[in-house]
């Protein structure tokens, strides 16, 4: 059976590993190369790297630096943050990434979904959707340049029709807060989902992984703070929840 995935997320800013709260107040937590080496050993199923500066529109990680940090890694790798062209996707896959996560790039230019899927195949193209709760309603966090609001459910339906591979859903309100994933958000969108979905934001205890991964359509759980601020590792998570969730152990 296809296993559910435990996916550590590594946020990079100024070539350093950082941790954020609600994608703000960056705190430097260590050396990125060292962390990747550690996660490569601790039974992670995949690693996700986010170029935080690029996602904030402040310049991108140098490609040779990225190449260096993943050179020791034999795990599946995804990268996101500020990606908005086919050439960039090509370059990132070429240095060894397996999937790219595109967020604002697709919002700004929805045609890019089809253009990238046609070249690289849908399995390599993940759409990232960041969500906040605003006056009681779930909304897409990123805006288009013209500030136009896009309805979350309409957007989810649209990107699935465009044959995107997976959907990475982040609740910005929960990100870095370690207060559990946003289960209300998942309930709100669940019936519209027909692609594999990965959930990010809020994981603080082992039980959180279990609670989210027992949902049929959720194929992976992303987490960051829990692996840096506690003794918990992907390995220990798996040992604890393997009876309830189908995992690679």
């Amino acid at each position: 059976m296809l296993k559910k995935r435990i996916i550590p997320v590594l946020l990079i800013s100024n070539d350093l590993l950082v941790k954020t709260k609600k994608f703000n107040s960056d705190r430097v937590i260590g050396n990125i190369i060292q962390s990747i080496k550690v996660f490569n050993k601790r039974e992670s199923d995949e690693l996700t790297i986010i170029d935080l500066d690029a996602s904030r529109g402040r310049g991108k990680i140098e490609i040779h630096f990225l190449k260096e940090i993943i050179s020791e890694c034999t795990l599946p790798l995804s990268i996101g943050g500020g990606i908005n062209s086919r050439d960039e996707v090509k370059e990132l896959l070429n240095i060894g990434f397996d999937k790219v996560i595109i967020n604002k790039g697709f919002l700004e230019n929805p045609k890019l979904i089809n253009h990238t899927v046609k070249i690289f195949g849908s399995q390599s193209i993940t759409i990232g959707i960041d969500i906040i709760k605003d006056r009681g309603k779930f909304k897409i966090f990123n805006k288009r340049n013209n500030n136009e609001d896009i309805d979350l459910i309409e957007w989810i339906k649209f990107v699935q029709d465009q044959n995107v591979g997976e959907i990475l859903l982040t609740s910005v309100d929960n990100e870095g807060m370690m207060n559990g994933y946003n289960y209300d958000l998942l309930d709100y969108i669940y019936k519209y989902i027909n692609k594999p979905i990965i959930i990010n934001g809020g994981c603080g205890k082992i039980k959180d992984f279990e609670k989210i991964l027992v949902k049929k359509k959720v194929m992976g759980a992303c987490a960051s703070s829990i692996f840096f601020y506690t003794q918990i590792t992907p390995h220990s998570v798996k040992q604890k929840i393997r009876k309830k969730v189908n995992l690679r152990v």
Binding site: L2, D45, K99, Q123, K195, P196, R248
Partner: peptide
């Protein structure tokens, strides 16, 4: 599941 992505 399609895309069939992950460990099997």
């Amino acid at each position: 599941v399609c895309p069939h992505n992950g460990w099997n």
